[in-house]
Design a binder for these strands. Structure first.
Lengths: 128, 128
DNA sequence: CTGAATCCGCTACGATACTG
DNA sequence: CAGTATCGTAGCGGATTCAG
């Protein structure tokens, strides 16, 4: 994936910040973090709360979060199996910084939507 | 893009928060916002600072940011043409909330990297 | 119940060439 | 200078099926 032409550029694709933040890029990470909060939830509970996620993506995203040390995965070897997910300390600290962004999005999404709408309108006008 | 099967679920894909936050998902939005800061930069200046971005992606991402009302685009009809980009008030307000996240990423990326490494190690161990 | 495995479409992204 | 137009690709993500 790299080209590693650059060595000490501040904020390019090889940059560690990208490395962490790219996880936010995928469709489900933020959603799962927000759903989890400070609860402990089982796989199926998460599935129920995030209605339109497929088991594949839920498992995959949880796996990534676990790899990054943001989420803890506790397996109870019972029958039927029982797996509980919760956020680690690192996850919580990340969550703290995530929440303001989500709140911002919630607060300003009307403005964003309006901006998009008026942009489209303006485009249509200029097409005449 | 949707299937709009659900109407009033709280945090699903039709949710306004997703609507805004999805922009963070793409490869360049955060990078451009951080590069722009409170400066006013021309297209080529942005290109120079974000070394490994193609003109296509720069234009496209700037277009999206403009559509969302986060970035202002000022065109000076001179020869040669001159276009300046800067952040809007909305953009600045977003930026304020973005920065803590980036700082978090910067501060903790070592822990994340370590978590990933030890995860892989553990995996390899269990494969025996 | 908790996933893993498979198949596959879509589109985000990259490289390049070209235009006003 | 500031972008578009075009083409090609990788991999994300969805649906479905199967397994421990």
């Amino acid at each position: 994936m790299g080209k590693r032409k650059l060595e000490h550029e501040p904020l390019n694709r090889n940059c560690p910040i990208r490395d962490v933040l790219d996880r936010l890029g995928d469709r489900w990470t933020v959603l799962i973090m927000m759903t989890l909060g400070d609860q402990t939830l089982r796989f199926s509970e998460l599935r129920r709360q995030i209605v339109d996620i497929s088991p594949r993506m839920l498992a995959q995203t949880l796996r990534h979060l676990e790899q990054d040390g943001l989420v803890l995965r506790e397996v109870y070897p019972t029958v039927p199996p029982r797996v509980e997910y919760s956020m680690s300390d690192l996850g919580h600290s990340f969550y703290e910084h995530l929440q303001p962004m989500v709140q911002w999005a919630d607060k300003h999404h009307d403005e964003v939507r309006q901006a998009r709408a008026s942009y489209i309108a303006q485009e249509a006008y200029q097409a005449l």
